[in-house]
Design a protein around this nucleic acid. Structure first.
Lengths: 239, 239
DNA sequence: CGCATTGTTGACAAAGTTCAATTTGCGTGG
DNA sequence: CCACGCAAATTGAACTTTGTCAACAATGCG
């Protein structure tokens, strides 16, 4: 998505793409920013690669630079519960900054090619101590994460299969949709959608057909063209 | 752990009961502890009183000293989703310590008579800045809260009505059960249990009767005597 | 004793899942 | 270029779980 421009730099040296914004790095002075970037390693990621496995002891802090990732929570039964998409500028592995060692709470898996910054726990903690604003930002992000998680919980407990599917479509369109004149195109199979919405394959198929009949979307194999995501959004709150 | 000795202190002056332990106050020096307690107001709470309403801007930090409270999350449909019991030593309103103003994520409601400490946002923030260990402790608690919330999410998404009910019984026995020789006695109506487990009143009634038939518990009006909470616990993971 | 609260039971409805049988789309190798 | 083969998608029907509703029973308080 973003062309690196200068390809001549050392691959492991951290460099921000133009126009990059992150809540983690907001409000920092140039010298603070330089110190933080100097301590980071840059890494390429490839589709389906697990970037951060739930349950592992938290010892790396990550910042997604380009590409898209998804976060999942494992259920006791062994399935993966989709939580949300991770976009460039989002940080994860924030448990790394806690003084008391804690395990990662969710799994993060890359969806596309992309790149991220990684900090070792030691340097991340050192940076957070030296740069109060960095810890503030991290704490704020944790706060937002908590709010999001709580909302997901409330939603999950009260939404129907149809609503969950609608939510997955709308959110996915925002994060991994390719915009076209006809609408937003998603490269997802019924099975992936069903898994993300926690709905059976068959329910997903039936519901998608229903929406296709209503002109809300068009499907072909492995692809969905979302024409009227608004009408799906209205399923979630209002009607 | 800490015995205050002097009972002659003013009622609104914070005083810890003997044997009181809290993760929030762990590892603090006596002088730090004194500063923290000096800044606190002590308040009595009465049953069903809402201590912290979800959505309100976070401007008070709380520490439950005696009694029991429950935390709930409101669903978009207007019902309350039970999350967990709050016991003495548990803190809540931790969002108060964030620099960026954020709303409370859950509602906390008192279950019994009891008391708690309250800090205004200004003094709580000041204390957290002066006493690094306090902020550390708060961050650790947030981390645990996140883990708990995520587990609740996973559980909710994959558990049956029976399992949810079992979980509510087991957890309630731990937190609000009166231990007797026959087992643990809970003062809860079917309706309360049903609401906590997010199950219909009728499903709750039937399931409880089933368990009574199996000798796992005994019911009378408004009361449940849990004889074999182990067998309920085994429903949650193993069998 | 009267009465409100609490709990029980059965019949039925709704939402989703499961499964088996097919059909559709699409890349590949002959 | 076409037929093959496979993954993806569809469809109907039975089934499971849980909620809904109405009628009724019991409990215990004033």
């Amino acid at each position: 998505m973003i062309d690196e421009g200068r390809r001549g730099r050392a691959a492991s040296r951290a460099a921000l793409p133009p126009g990059f914004r992150s809540k983690l790095l907001e409000g920092l002075t140039p010298s603070e920013m330089a110190a933080i970037l100097a301590a980071a390693k840059q890494r390429r990621i490839s589709p389906n690669q697990v970037l951060l496995p739930e349950g592992d002891s938290a010892n790396h802090l990550f910042l997604l630079v380009t590409g898209v990732a998804a976060s999942y929570k494992a259920t006791p039964e062994g399935s993966q519960l989709f939580l949300r998409w991770i976009s460039p500028g989002d940080a994860f592995g924030l448990a790394t900054l806690l003084q008391v060692q804690q395990p990662y709470v969710v799994t993060i898996q890359a969806q596309r090619e992309g790149s991220l910054f990684v900090w070792e726990q030691a340097s991340a903690c050192a940076l957070a101590s030296q740069i109060p604003r960095l810890r503030e930002n991290a704490n704020t992000m944790v706060g937002e994460f908590v709010a999001r998680l709580a909302d997901a919980l409330a939603a999950r407990a009260s939404q129907t299969a149809e609503q969950r599917l609608a939510r997955v479509l709308v959110e996915s369109a925002r994060h991994i949709g390719r915009a076209g004149r006809e609408g937003s195109e998603l490269r997802l199979t019924n099975e992936q959608l069903a898994q993300m919405a926690d709905v059976s394959l068959f329910t997903a198929s039936r519901q998608l057909n229903e929406w296709q009949r209503q002109g809300i979307l068009a499907k072909s194999r492995g692809k969905i063209l979302l024409r009227a995501s608004k009408r799906l959004g209205s399923l979630l709150s209002g009607d």
